[in-house]
Write a protein that binds this DNA or RNA. Structure first.
Lengths: 197, 197
DNA sequence: ATGGTATGATACCGATCGGTAACCTCAGCG
DNA sequence: CGCTGAGGTTACCGATCGGTATCATACCAT
């Protein structure tokens, strides 16, 4: 039963888990603290005993997402330690699989950036660091592949990733996300040719 | 003076113009009807005399954006009526220029899709039709170019467009958007080679 | 038993949310 | 002149927002 699942763990864990799910599904501003508490089978007080504010809860959620993201990224990298090309391919295959889910709701970071425009919001820095790091990691892989301008190719691949994520949740655009892996392959291969000449 | 500009036109026009600017800059849910009215130098009553609800105002804003979007798209197409390749190039150059603005806040449609998850919201259909049409128009251009799989290339270009828009407003990702035009060129050219062989 | 710790329950706070009713002003136009 | 329609003004509605205070309960370790 889902009732069971919702009551598993401490109040903190339930609040956190529930908040993550609701923020992701419905957006940050669309979800009130009262709703989170109720859905987590607890009360607002337990939320505020464990998190200083809703804004900090949002930031904590994104920090958690960041950690999990790099965890699975690193796990994937470790499978092909000496093959950056395959790492890149694996990353896009993982993305493609994730984006194929009809319930996909895009990247929590990018979505949060749409809703949060205040530069002093605690989540803003989390978003910034996450995306900068993703671009850097992509550039690192591209450099190891040995392309001419690794930053350029990395940013192009980055755009594909972001485009696939946002399209996956946009009505009328969902099907387009399926082409992300092939597009990445084209960009990567085309860069190889240009440097091998 | 901006005070002057804000008082130009009817109350309806001021409300509409102000709402469009505020929704775009700060997001839909972050902006209340009272704020819109005040910023438009009028009151809530004038807003509700001209628009049945906030949701409908949002939908009207997106419909207006859709109209303007295709207006400038068609104007651009008319400059190179028999050169679909140049039309495509021009579209990406326009996008690149728009996205280079440090104040860029992405695509109103895609952003709205992040905030609005209700399938019965009046804006949802507007978003869906807009994005579906964009994909169709891209596919049409790709077909006229004469690539093998015009839908595939169109979706890949679509992902680049969406990626550039969303990145332009994401902290830590802004710089990546600058590579969108070159990425598009690579995808297009690579497709040409594959069919000319 | 005792004292901390975590949690639940309930009531409350001021502010804001989207939306409405009633009234008044004023310009345009016959 | 009087009518009409647009718009400004104010007050209000119930609901919800994020956040807090208070009190009771239950468990766990010493």
């Amino acid at each position: 039963m889902s009732k069971r699942a919702k009551n598993e763990g401490s109040a903190r864990e339930r609040v956190f888990r529930t908040a993550a799910a609701l923020f992701h599904r419905h957006g940050i501003r669309a979800v009130g603290v009262e709703t989170i508490a109720a859905e987590a089978n607890t009360t607002k007080m337990s939320l505020y005993r464990n998190f200083p504010s809703k804004d900090e809860l949002v930031a904590a959620w994104l920090r958690d997402h960041d950690a999990r993201f790099w965890q699975s990224w690193d796990a994937m990298s470790r499978e092909y330690p000496d093959d950056p090309r395959r790492q890149l391919k694996a990353a896009f295959e993982l993305l493609a699989k994730h984006v194929a889910d009809p319930k996909a709701r895009g990247c929590p970071m990018a979505n949060a950036a749409v809703e949060i425009t205040e530069s002093d919001h605690p989540a803003t820095k989390v978003i910034k660091v996450h995306k900068a790091r993703l671009r850097a990691r992509l550039a690192e892989l591209c450099a190891r592949i040995g392309v001419g301008d690794s930053r350029l190719l990395a940013d192009q691949l980055f755009l594909l990733m972001e485009g696939a994520q946002v399209s996956a949740q946009t009505p009328g655009a969902r099907a387009a996300a399926a082409s992300v892996a092939r597009a990445a392959a084209v960009l990567i291969d085309s860069n190889r040719f240009s440097t091998e000449v």
